[in-house]
Amino acid sequence: MDHLDKLEAKSVHILREAYAAFGNLCMLWSIGKDSTVLLWLARKAFYGHVPFPLVHVDTHYKIPEMIEYRDRLAMEYGLYMIYGENKEALDKGETFPNGKVSHMECCRLLKTEALTHTLNGTWPRYRLNLETGKYERDTDTAAYTGVIVGARSDEEGSRSKERYFSPRDKYNDWNLDDQPPEFWNQFKTDFAPGTHVRIHPLLDWTELNIWEYIDRENIPTVSLYYNQGDGYRYRSLGCAPCTKPIKSNSRTPKEIIQELKTGALANIAERSGREQDKEDGGLETLRRNGYM
């Protein structure tokens, strides 16, 4: 087994444990490369099937290509595709691009709040109708008790301390000063009513591994990751106003792998193009309060 086989086997093992333990399981799909690899691994684990819903939090500031790509893949794979949103904040225009709130507050409203309420079922969930290709209000409003997330520990400090199975309390908070022990492939699969567990099958993967795997498995990824001729590409995807492309000529996964190994990106942090990481406390503060 090479290093990708080992990473794949461990992730598949974790996905199967999650599927066995949680009656109400879902997977977050941000349309980015990591959660797309995660989706692919689910198809590996369950032999081409994905036996749980995929949840996307739509801030309505995503780059349009991301939404097109999401729906195309969902139709092709026959996915149980859900999106959720913070309708109130969007209606009132309480967003950073409107100049009404800060970066961090915008993230909190459009992502964290939307996520919390989509997961616990208190806000509407919209499900893709695979016959018509249109979204309809989902009749299932039960809280998800297991949420699969594509966080990697090499992304930043607080993610490097995550568990594979990581509990969130009923306020969606992460108590990272008192995390449960986790050893020998045995995970926290028991949880108190009202709480849920985040499951992180990609914890051991690096950005490089993700690209090596995308290349090996030929996984379809959104075209924004590749230079389309203007000398720019996205390294990490988020909302259009807060995510900047980087200078890069890479047009294929193979060229990105080369770039990461020896090229210009070898020493630049992956999330350096993401604004929310730069303010006080950054991602750790967001994540303690429920951010992925």
Partner: peptide
């Protein structure tokens, strides 16, 4: 870990 029988797509 599990016994899987997913019948969609006539599997």
């Amino acid at each position: 870990q599990g016994v899987y029988k997913f019948t969609d797509n006539n599997d």
